[in-house]
Write a protein that binds this DNA or RNA. Structure first.
Length: 306
DNA sequence: CACATAATAT
DNA sequence: AATATTATGT
């Protein structure tokens, strides 16, 4: 399905590139710190001075523009979407909106925000460098599309949670072990919260009953024994001896990598292919431990592409 | 600050 | 309905 799309996209990329070449260089632009309209002129025409924009504002605006463009042109791109120059970093699933809101929160929102005054030239330099070098900060700034927890994703989640023990897991660790590109701690935290509610509901719902239709996702991936509360107490996670020593965290490149595929899967729960560990592509084998204590290789993955 | 949980927003 | 975000407390 993707060859055709791929070519089209390459063309787009080239055009974007050409377009970029035509842009004025940094030197040609009026510095952010300078108003476009001289004070005299402004007062003459009763123009109220605009607030100063920082690099942050500029970058944010660019991101909004780019992502809205991207959403218009290719709502359902797939993983062959390699990378627009710098800001493209959202492997996640698009589900809709992107509102560009230059000014809804002007004075107030930003007034309270840290507006950094730049004192020394050295500081100015470093500020520019860090703010300008795209994705470190764009990764945080860019509004990510909402994540869709496909059964595949959820399975990774459950596997990880199962091995750490539901009592001990914390979002950050889960996020790391899942090794899913673009997955955030917040994503995981939110999901974990819901999952815990599900488990609770399951256990005091006299254990087994038809899972609510809303629990389809959770029901699609059976709760591993290590997570089941054995009728009330015991609650030691006593089991799951964690045969493997906590593996050296350094082996996992995790999220930040520039993989730069803005891959977007079709949202929706198209299928419930419940193939366990069915990803056998030899990639960067990032490991994890399955519920039996065996080491299982978790390829670095992007939501929905597995 | 990272986390848990509940409440609320989108 | 599913996720995100926010508020509050640890």
């Amino acid at each position: 399905m993707s060859d055709y799309e791929g070519h089209v996209r390459d063309g787009d990329e080239e055009r974007v590139f050409e377009w970029e070449l035509g842009l004025p260089s940094a030197d040609d632009l009026t510095p952010l710190s300078q108003p476009l309209i001289s004070p005299e002129l402004a007062s003459a025409f009763n123009i109220s001075p605009e607030r100063c924009r920082s690099m942050i504002d500029v970058n944010r605006a660019s991101h909004n523009t780019l992502s809205s463009l991207r959403i218009q042109t290719e709502p359902f791109s797939s993983n062959n979407f390699k990378s627009l120059p710098s800001f493209t970093r959202d492997p996640l699933v698009v589900q809709g909106d992107d509102e560009l809101d230059p000014e809804n929160s002007t004075e107030e929102g930003l007034g309270s925000r840290k507006v950094r005054r730049i004192e020394s030239t050295e500081e100015a330099d470093s500020a520019l460098r860090t703010e300008n070098s795209s994705y470190d900060h764009s990764a945080r700034t860019l509004k990510r599309p909402r994540l869709v927890w496909t059964p595949q994703l959820h399975k990774r989640f459950v596997d990880v949670v199962a091995h750490l023990g539901i009592k001990n897991v914390v979002p950050k660790t889960i996020m790391q072990l899942m090794n899913v590109d673009g997955l955030t701690r917040e994503n995981v935290a939110s999901h974990l919260q819901k999952y815990r509610l599900y488990l609770k509901r399951m256990q005091d719902l006299s254990n087994n009953d038809a899972p609510s239709s809303s629990d389809l996702l959770f029901a699609s991936t059976p709760v591993p024994p290590s997570l089941q509360e054995s009728s009330g107490h015991g609650h030691g996670n006593g089991h799951m001896p964690l045969p493997m020593p906590a593996p050296p965290v350094m082996h996992m490149p995790i999220v930040g990598v520039a993989h730069g595929h803005g891959n977007v899967g079709v949202a929706a729960y198209n299928g419930f292919e419940s193939h366990p560990y069915s990803m056998f592509r030899d990639q960067q084998q990032d490991w994890s431990i399955n519920k039996f204590g065996a080491i299982v290789s978790y390829p670095h993955v992007t939501p929905n592409d597995n």
